[in-house]
Design a binder for these strands. Sequence first.
DNA 1: TATTGTTATACTCTATAACTATA
DNA 2: TATAGTTATAGAGTATAACAATA
Lengths: 125, 125
Amino acid sequence: MLRRAANAMMGELAIRLAQSDLRITDATILMLVEGRDDLTASNIGRVLDVQRANMVPILARLEERGLIDRKPLDGKSQAVVLTAQGGKVAARARDTVENFEGELLQRIPAEHRDHLLPALSALVE
Amino acid sequence: MLRRAANAMMGELAIRLAQSDLRITDATILMLVEGRDDLTASNIGRVLDVQRANMVPILARLEERGLIDRKPLDGKSQAVVLTAQGGKVAARARDTVENFEGELLQRIPAEHRDHLLPALSALVE
DNA sequence: TATTGTTATACTCTATAACTATA
DNA sequence: TATAGTTATAGAGTATAACAATA
């Protein structure tokens, strides 16, 4: 059920985010760097469970579209930061995701609703 | 959280099933045809959300290992059935999965435990 | 006409190893 | 020594189109 629910929900979310030409990982990255200027590619990869080697094409795509930029932190690290356009897209993505989450919670009978997140959190630890 | 929980749990389950040389999809198929002799490859694919074209290599692998066999249903359809050895492996897989599920539920605080499955079920519908 | 089983193929995602340069 | 960024590559998983044969 966990797998099926996650697959079904991610599928639905993917369709909604596709209207902003974003994949789920893209949207997650944009939302993660929103309002920050100190997160490196390796850093983001660790949070999202994506190997840093696999971050390269993902970030390259976002950079090509003018959504993100790089800001040197020192001689070897660089922060991933949103461009002005990236900020707009990130805000729209956040709206999409939060609306979707709200809808999902509404699908759950009231007596179970508040238990889902705590239960899932306990599993992840 | 839904995605992270599902990924983390499927990862753990994959490690345990690997000790029986099974992937999650393999185990799911074996458990699905356990005690039945009327499920075709297309049939299983629809249940598991796997295109029938992609069922071919999966079933071929299980057949090579002597875990499943084919039983003609009519001139064009054939049922996937367990061999004697397949029955043993299926039973072990079921044990592994059920033990794991029990452990997962134990990780959830008692007050949330009984709400997870109903909440997930509501999401899938 | 629709479905089964199959082949072939392409695309995405992921994992690993290796390399350079810097901390 | 460890880490950042990158390249190259291999393996899964998945999606699509097409075909012959049968329902």
